[in-house]
């Protein structure tokens, strides 16, 4: 049973201090049965990446509400790459306009959950992609 545990890192790179969305996300993911690690606010991309490596998570859910996503999120992917773990899924959440979706995906973000989405969409994505994969193993 324990081998089906999905570990998720909720990361808040950038200087954005509004953590309501990240905390609600963390709790919702927990209630969905995942093991959730939260980095806290004001993380550098390197901090998020090293945390993900050490915790050996399956997915990173990034959240930023200040418009720094286009610069900061791809840096997380870069840092993962440097550490040989860019196989970890990276999801982007926050105030992300539609036109930023493709640029983010091109830079290695696996899915973008912009305005109008909520934790439930993230949970479903993880269930489909990560849990599905684990059960398919």
């Amino acid at each position: 049973m324990a081998d089906k545990v999905v570990r998720v890192l909720v990361g808040k790179p950038g200087l954005d201090g509004h953590d309501r969305a990240a905390k609600v996300m963390a709790r919702a993911l927990r209630d969905a049965g995942f093991e959730v690690i939260y980095t806290g606010i004001r993380q550098t991309p390197a901090q998020v990446a090293q945390t993900a490596v050490q915790e050996d998570v399956d997915v990173i859910v990034l959240n930023n509400l200040t418009g720094a996503h286009l610069e900061v999120f791809p840096l997380v992917v870069e840092e993962l790459k440097k550490r040989g773990r860019d196989d970890i899924y990276v999801l982007a959440t926050g105030v992300i306009p539609f036109e930023d979706v493709e640029p983010l995906k091109e830079k290695g973000i696996d899915e973008v959950f912009g305005p109008g989405t909520g934790p439930i969409h993230v949970i479903n994505w993880i269930k489909e992609h990560v849990l599905g994969e684990k059960q398919g193993e």
Partner: peptide, 15 residues
């Protein structure tokens, strides 16, 4: 932080 600080990357003039 001044704008040239490392932590300011991606944040200068944003909000």
């Amino acid at each position: 932080y001044d704008s040239d600080h490392d932590l300011a990357i991606g944040e200068v003039g944003k909000v």
